[in-house]
Design a protein around this nucleic acid. Sequence first.
DNA 1: AAACTTAGTGTAAAAAATACACTTTGAAAA
DNA 2: TTTTCAAAGTGTATTTTTTACACTAAGTTT
Lengths: 248, 248
Amino acid sequence: MITKFQSQTNPNISVDCVIFGFDGSNLKVLLLQRAGRDNLDIDDPTMVLPGDLILDYEDLDEAASRILFELTGIKDLYLEQIGAFGHPDRLAKALDRKWLNAIRLEPNARVITVGYFALVNVDDYKLRPSGFAKFAEWKDFREVGELGFDHNEILDKAIDKLRNKLYREPVGFELLPAHFSLHQLLSLYKEIMNSDIDKRNFRRKMLKTGFIQETEHFQAGVPHKPARLYSFVREEFDNIKQQKFKFY
Amino acid sequence: MITKFQSQTNPNISVDCVIFGFDGSNLKVLLLQRAGRDNLDIDDPTMVLPGDLILDYEDLDEAASRILFELTGIKDLYLEQIGAFGHPDRLAKALDRKWLNAIRLEPNARVITVGYFALVNVDDYKLRPSGFAKFAEWKDFREVGELGFDHNEILDKAIDKLRNKLYREPVGFELLPAHFSLHQLLSLYKEIMNSDIDKRNFRRKMLKTGFIQETEHFQAGVPHKPARLYSFVREEFDNIKQQKFKFY
DNA sequence: AAACTTAGTGTAAAAAATACACTTTGAAAA
DNA sequence: TTTTCAAAGTGTATTTTTTACACTAAGTTT
């Protein structure tokens, strides 16, 4: 990912992706170990977000899609820009510099990065682990340590954006399989929003929205009453979307 | 603005600012005519958002502040990043190319721009019109025509962000004088949100928030009962900010 | 003093949010 | 086959919020 096409890349602009996944109880972030053992002989255990310099004729969104595809094999996943990060010292830590010197054609170039967050269904991801998977790790978002570059800042912003988004639109479905139980959905909301939500009220409210559709499928292989599975009907949501205005 | 410091600028990264103002009934955007008559002999009537390449050791926010200061003389104004815009063809229109060739040291460089929106109190702005003012224009945001580069796209995104922001936080105060009537505030909300809002309900709701404080000042020079003026108490808002979670 | 213009106010009805606890169902174990 | 276990699934009453709606009050101008 890193050394390929280096001559066609723009040395000043990169894209970094925060890939969120949900394992049923915790919100996870996909992290990479910066120095893949076999690419390089520098010993650098730093974890980072997946990212790369952009190619010369590539739009920013395309660059993000490319990086995500190379990493997960998933083509159409939910992707949203977080914003640009451009502090002049964002690449100034000692280990960051060492890595840049080993890897980049222009290690001293100033780089602005554009952050993205992606939502993936972890099950899909497991289907085609890429060559990177060996050095990739799903990490509980609350337990992420110090990352390379300014990636902690990007991650924080991503979480913020995700919360804000979920507050306004039902993006949570992107993190779940096509058929999910209301319990799964509730857990997801609780986890992302970091708050308790009443089960009965949640059900009522969700079902009333009209974009959660009952299916004929049920949970399987559980040692208790299996829950009915539902699916998300995007069209219904799109209809409803003309939200009422509500101000502070 | 444009020719100054050109050798210290990064040729690949610029900042563009959408400056919003409110004249009491309409939301305005500050536009510049791209070719200042006395700088250049190219005849280019294209209107654009104020913007510039960033300086080598300047953070993105700093660059936006600098541009805003140079233009308006205002130092501390509300500023928020919109995001990065990087389509490979964003500078490809014929007039855009002509302008770049006339102005830029590296006219063919790919440029990613980072958009910002700023909220200013138009009264403050009037106090110190800069040298640019002659070629600057406050334009009703609904009546902006075709701008240079991809600036229409940036403007659209800015309006979107502003609405979203206002939906969640009382940023409207940034557009008003320190003392304002509830009527002014209501007009502002109606205009930005593009919707009718009931006067009595608005008053009640606003006053109940606790961050609108009654002052002893009244409107002056109006041919009718003068309205009481209020002020915004940021601290109160900050206290309240731990908003309840509400989902779709 | 009359006319004009905007400021400023209250109530009732509907909708939404909240708090709260027991029964049902299927699988597994006894 | 019965019992146990674990999560699924359900309803109601109260409070809060939202909405719709029209007249009086207070200055200024004529």
